[in-house]
Write a protein that binds this DNA or RNA. Sequence first.
DNA 1: ACTTGGCACTCAGGACGGTGGAGTGCCAGG
DNA 2: CCTGGCACTCCACCGTCCTGAGTGCCAAGT
Lengths: 337, 337
Amino acid sequence: MLDERKLAVLRAIVEDYVSTTEPVGSKSLVDRHNLDVSPATIRNDMAVLEEQGFIVQPHTSAGRIPTDKGYRLFVDRLSGVKPLSSAERRAIETFLAGAYDLDDVVMRTVRLLAQLTRQVAVVQYPSLTRSSVRHVELVPLAAKRIMLVIITDTGRVEQRSMELPDAAEEDSIMHLRAVLNACLDGRRLTEVASVVADLPELVDPMDRPNAAAVFSVILETLVERTDERVVVGGAANLTTADFSKGLREVLESLEEQVVLMRLLGESGDHPSLTVRIGAENPVEGLRSTSVVAAGYGTGDQVLARLGVLGPTRMDYPTAMGAVRAVARYVGQILAGS
Amino acid sequence: MLDERKLAVLRAIVEDYVSTTEPVGSKSLVDRHNLDVSPATIRNDMAVLEEQGFIVQPHTSAGRIPTDKGYRLFVDRLSGVKPLSSAERRAIETFLAGAYDLDDVVMRTVRLLAQLTRQVAVVQYPSLTRSSVRHVELVPLAAKRIMLVIITDTGRVEQRSMELPDAAEEDSIMHLRAVLNACLDGRRLTEVASVVADLPELVDPMDRPNAAAVFSVILETLVERTDERVVVGGAANLTTADFSKGLREVLESLEEQVVLMRLLGESGDHPSLTVRIGAENPVEGLRSTSVVAAGYGTGDQVLARLGVLGPTRMDYPTAMGAVRAVARYVGQILAGS
DNA sequence: ACTTGGCACTCAGGACGGTGGAGTGCCAGG
DNA sequence: CCTGGCACTCCACCGTCCTGAGTGCCAAGT
């Protein structure tokens, strides 16, 4: 149905349109790429491609531009993942190696991705539900007020200050802390709920009310709160691509955590590259953008996802290369700390 | 030099221009506001105002628009701070009251400000240098690796994972932790440097190398690192105001922490409202924007600053009202937690 | 059965020119 | 010092024309 040349034509159209931002016509195609046929032939091919829905013309007698479906075919069958230059690889390594903090890693990653791809970068913090507890700390702040700090093996630190029902002695808080650490240390967060249910028995009856309060906050923080943090960077890159009035819509979407999560793909269990093009996108208002995302993690374990967002007219091979490479390096960094 | 009426004219011009985005002429001025004079008179006044540099015409025979100097005069002498409606006050209260976390407070504040003013909101985290230590926690992660967590009285939690020179027993870490808390608890961060200098003597000689490492990281984190965190929200509001191509520049500036700090005003010791108009702005690239900022804190203590950023053509009275009100409420919330 | 050159056709976008209207500056008279 | 009148300026808008890039189709060639 689509012979070899027609595919080549589609590829050429995508490439040209991405680099020039202008509808591409049969003439300019033949001399830019060395297709050994005449413009007329190309026109026939283009007519077919258009009929099949891979390209359209913005108006009669203008060049063609790819449709979402066209990009999809391009990504699936016509283009590979462009590997980074060695200079870029080194840049990534040195840039990420300097980080000393989970926050810092995430921040640097966002900047890096944005700079590498000249698109908007989106990085999700290592998922809470996939990490395990490394330490629980209770810090007395006032008579009836403590701060709860939970540290995970991925380096995430969740903190929450809370009111206690009863005034508590330093001792009883320390005891509670010991119990918590003994029972929760090393547990996957998904197990926490069941473990916590059994805890009250281990606590001095006097302290039960306080303990119960703490337990419920722990559950709230670790289990119920799905709020996975997401960081965005490089929004300035949106100005290059003219979304005309849609820009506002895009910027607004980027400020909503929930939207960003859906964007990266809630499933996200496999580390491979995911590409969502235009209307494939689950988010209303980002229907004119594409997302290239990948999971990252330590070893085989996928902790979270990261990616870039840009206009559907995006340099997919490069974006995919950058996302994949960065995801790998971030995984290494996290594994090593 | 500028009589009463000329000032009224300037005020009217600013108000009209802000609300319509269009140059305002003598005719439309007289019937919109009830100045009891003829357009011709107004024209004379406008000629004077223009000569003095308060207004300009974009081109001959168009209306006038205010200059930075004009806005400055408007803010200083012609407009008060518009108090919020009671509905807005209630909205602020309920919205902020729901926060359970410093992070949460900051995030909510940003959203609130952005929504209230329809501008870009900028909120700085409570300054480290102005807070005091409430607790220091050392969490063993591996044989030679610990996580250092510092909690301040403003609710900020700074964390940092670090490598130790020697493997350390749980005991010696707990001891170090006790020493640190005994000596640092309640200290202003500015005092930390001198206190830490005396610490090594209190530590078992065996543990000195590890202790030294920890101390130096504490200093790095609390003292040397000026990196005050700043959060931005409502960037989508920039699209309404047409900066044309300057938009990219503005967005880029907003992604740089350092720039944002300078924007809010590094001085920032007084809690009162600060307005920076156009070229008054210290930041290259934000010369076409204005910033309305205020300090916030608990009681008389200024912890940090927050504000909004928008085009010079901005509704100053409203923005000032919102910023002032939000700053106060945030102070209250922080004081109460 | 493709490919090719030729040809007529379409249409967005830039250049040109005219017009209307909002706004101005200036002046002479109240 | 204010005011009405008047001539002037120039942007924004509108229709027109024109050009060029690009197309679809067809008939001829391989």
